[in-house]
Simulated assay, not measured.
Amino acid sequence: MKEYFCFDHRLGISIPNLELEWAQYSEETQQAILFHWEQIRGSIPDRIAELELSINQKQAQLSDESNFKTSCELNSEIAELASIINDLWLWYRANQTVSEKMHQ
């Protein structure tokens, strides 16, 4: 499946990387891709929970931080983690229709 997915280091998951139109893949390949994606998609909520834990830890640090520069850095890190969570939810929801095709 490595040829159909690439690991996104920012998101922490593999995402589809299809070079052909969907119809150009054999039905067997389509099913394998969908099965693999469903496994990845199922791990997204766990990945989000990890990131939320990290955000909570940084927010706790931020509440005790008196150094302005460090506070800005923590805020920036929290914003980046929130952005990653948003992108993960987009992948999770946008590809829900793909997952539904697998069950038809």
Rank of each mutant, 00 (worst) to 15 (best):
K2H: 15
K2V: 02
E3P: 00
Y4C: 02
C6H: 08
F7T: 09
D8W: 06
D8H: 11
D8L: 01
L11F: 05
S14G: 06
I15Q: 07
N17T: 10
L20R: 14
W22R: 04
A23E: 09
A23Y: 07
A23R: 15
Q24Y: 03
Y25H: 08
S26C: 01
E28W: 01
A32M: 09
W37K: 10
Q39V: 12
Q39W: 05
R41T: 04
S43R: 14
S43D: 11
I44P: 05
D46S: 14
A49P: 01
L51R: 11
N56Q: 14
N56V: 04
Q57L: 03
Q57N: 15
K58H: 08
A60Q: 12
Q61L: 07
S63Q: 09
E65G: 05
E65L: 04
F68Q: 12
S71P: 01
S71G: 15
E73V: 02
L74V: 07
S76T: 12
E77T: 14
L81K: 03
A82D: 01
A82I: 03
S83W: 11
I84W: 08
D87W: 00
L88S: 04
L88P: 08
W89S: 00
L90E: 12
Y92F: 15
A94N: 11
N95C: 07
T97N: 04
T97K: 07
S99C: 13
E100K: 05
M102E: 07
Q104E: 11
